[in-house]
Write a protein that binds this DNA or RNA. Structure first.
Lengths: 222, 222
DNA sequence: TAGATTGTTAATCGATTAACAATC
DNA sequence: TAGATTGTTAATCGATTAACAATC
């Protein structure tokens, strides 16, 4: 999979930051900025130039000594490393407020992700169209995953059924789950999870505010 | 603010994990489990017993040697450390899909957060009631923040106006921003941010799947 | 009692920061 | 050319893991 030998050296914190550098670069490109230095990137991100260079160092194509980084080249290089060019099919499981917000708000197509299905258990929602996709009954999900090669599931069902749902997804071949429920999912080792409990993010922010002077850390990312 | 001297030693990674241990503990309590060991917590969380103990070690009240941790006591202790007993007022800025999902889905009240206002610029939404709160016009936000002592703003406006909006929030006294936009916010040092770009989480998940065998890391949290 | 498991210190590992030669 | 800034190695810092005595 990693087409570049150095790719295997990307650490978890670096991978996380790369996804966010990419957003910054895209914003710069929109503003027609063609060159950026590690110093400028660090200022935008909220880290140090040294860390930026250390992160970018692992990419295949990077910058020019003395000149900085070309925003376009760098963005392309980050995309290549993150694998956004490797198309991945994805479904949203649970079409409540959260599922809908994700469908409407996340620009999947710009990052190699194909949202190809929305699923729910509620008969009142099934058949409804969300972002050009019909909401399908949850009973069809298993077959759909196999037939359409679904790699990723975004999980926004009630917390109580989250594990049960996950087991089914995994049994049918899903390789990654983005978990928006408050359940702590048990998964086999070959399936990846990213947990996104919004309440935890708010709690953390509250803690940071309370401890502003003691800890002082302005956190960078989610 | 930290009422316990040891509280100041809570590191950022530990604080993050504490918010998630709390969810696990609450789930255990719902199931009437009264005692849990570091080994069990680690298994649920996906880390090591050693790390769990190292994290909990900083709390004021913890466990009993040889016996494990009381779920109730531990949860209370984590809450105290995270400051969920210190009430904080919060507003949601931007009442599109994301703002609505947050209002509907996040159990603020259980974690010391009072959602007291919803704001939007769109006249078609203003006046609408979401989760028992009327959507107010964005013009009223500044005064509202000062008058009601709003500490936290959840930001789900269009990316293009995010910085501008943030500047206003901060000028009026907001101390923490949960940023759901794709903008990289510039903030004064005394204001905290937590960035929650959903697309980054999906991209990261994609990377993890591609590199499953090489990196093998099943990520723990958001 | 013996077994289990915490609290806590020490050792290791990994990530960040510093430094600087290369070079545009 | 001189100044700026990368690429990369080395040094430092901090976080995780290991270890084990204390004790329920």
């Amino acid at each position: 999979m990693p087409n570049n030998p150095k790719t295997r050296d990307i650490t978890t914190p670096t991978a996380r930051r790369l996804t966010e550098y990419l957003l910054i670069l895209e914003e710069l490109m929109e503003r027609s900025v063609t060159v950026v230095s590690s110093k400028e990137l660090a200022e935008a991100f909220g880290n140090t130039p040294s860390q930026v260079r250390q992160d970018l160092f692992r990419l295949s194509e990077t910058g020019r000594v003395g000149q900085g980084y070309s925003t376009g080249t760098l963005a392309r290089s980050i995309r290549e490393t993150l694998g956004t060019h490797i198309a991945k099919n994805l479904v949203i499981v649970g079409c409540g407020m959260v599922g809908r917000a994700i469908a409407a708000h996340v620009p999947f197509d710009r990052y190699g992700l194909n949202l190809i299905g929305m699923f729910d258990i509620n008969p009142n929602i099934i058949g409804e169209t969300i972002e050009n996709l019909p909401v399908s009954p949850i009973e069809d999900l298993g077959d759909f995953i196999e037939r359409r090669d679904v790699l990723i599931a975004s999980l926004s069902v009630p917390t109580l059924v989250a594990q049960e749902m996950t087991d089914k997804l995994v049994a049918r071949g899903v390789r990654g789950v983005l978990n928006f429920t408050r359940a702590r999912l048990k998964l086999p080792a070959n399936v990846s999870v990213v947990n996104s409990q919004m309440i935890c993010q708010f709690t953390r922010l509250g803690f940071m505010i309370d401890h502003f002077d003691t800890v002082g850390h302005k956190e960078k990312s989610e």
